[in-house]
Design a protein around this nucleic acid. Structure first.
Lengths: 199, 199
DNA sequence: GGCATTATCTTGACAGTGTCAAGATTTTCG
DNA sequence: CGAAAATCTTGACACTGTCAAGATAATGCC
């Protein structure tokens, strides 16, 4: 039960929410503990009652983001219960859409939360859960003959990497104008996925 | 001619070098303008004679990194002048190797240098040059029948995205242990590339 | 219900940061 | 040689993450 009723009510979640808001309004560079605290209406070091350091708050924001990503991914897949090919296609587009709708949250999710510390088990868990969801879809595609029947896990890494790579490059502005003038990012992602399933 | 002989000699490049060293020894979080200045043996705001702000130094470091990446990529491709398939395979592995050998430089290269400012034309140039190199290899593969003959540029985005995605996920620790226990990262990249060329 | 314990929050401080202004020093060049 | 420009230093400012000490409120035990 993480909600009580002392001074603030539910400061921990309020801080996460404030962090997400700052992230979407001012970007990663605008995210400071003190601003988060101010936006939540508490003093500058109140967050230390709930997070040992800034990295820990970032981990919590990232975990929240991953939960949302998983939910949207799952919804996209569940929309086509008997069509693995569509699951893969729409899952990839959902991944892209989440990134576009939550640019800086997406970036911070993949900005070194996992790197050193095993301190964030909730993050590790949702990350693994997401990967396993990809494996499931890949397996369904393999059973249906849309993907080669080699190691599902390797194939899942390839699929996730393919989508993640294009999305990341796009967010970084690395996709050349000579390409973007002719194709929307959605087209690039869809093309790459199509490339994978038409073996 | 960027080298003169006033106070320091060639401070601009010395700062870039100092930045790369700090990056490889202390990581991204350890990179501060003041530490870079100190390591170069100048006062804390000497860098402002050569870079308008920190982001500009990061852009210079990133540009340097991209130049090196291009060189290694090009060398890997040139090693197999008449074998497009090998060019693609070895190019992908060279990309991975560069990332592993220069982890934080690689990360900073793809950490928002291009995002807003068109202030860094040298960075944009080497970035585009690299992409065009990928397009060339893709074209050669298409001519040789190893890749589908649709838009070379879209295909190049797919190829780059595929390799970049797996490498990025690996650097972030996002590749599940259940996969890494059985396969080296090199295997994952090679598998994904193999997947693309065996149409 | 009262009270000690604990959780939560505030205040104040510290070192480190990016950045700017003013000035000193050196190089360059007419 | 001397003026102008480039380069570097010193000092300052606001902002940051973090910690220590204390205030305040909620919890649970008697």
């Amino acid at each position: 039960m993480p909600s009580k009723k002392y001074h603030h009510g539910d400061l921990k979640n309020a801080l996460i929410k404030a962090g997400v808001e700052i992230l979407s309004k001012e970007g990663i560079d605008g995210l400071s503990l003190r601003k988060v605290a101010q936006r939540a209406g508490v003093s500058h070091s109140a967050p230390y009652s709930h997070f040992p350091d800034k990295q820990s708050l970032i981990a919590a924001i990232s975990t929240e983001g991953f939960n949302q990503l998983y939910a949207e991914l799952d919804a996209a897949v569940l929309a086509y219960p008997k069509n693995p090919k569509k699951q893969l296609q729409q899952g990839a587009l959902a991944y892209l859409q989440f990134a576009l709708n939550n640019i800086d949250t997406f970036k911070i999710m993949f900005s070194g939360v996992l790197e050193k510390e095993k301190e964030y088990p909730a993050f590790v868990e949702i990350s693994h859960k997401t990967f396993r969801r990809v494996v499931d879809v890949v397996k369904a595609c393999q059973d249906a003959g849309f993907l080669r029947s080699t190691s599902s896990e390797m194939m899942a890494v390839a699929v996730w990497g393919q989508v993640h790579g294009i999305v990341s490059l796009a967010l970084e502005g690395q996709i050349s104008h000579s390409v973007l003038d002719h194709h929307a990012i959605q087209d690039l992602v869809s093309f790459a996925v199509e490339q994978m399933i038409s073996s």
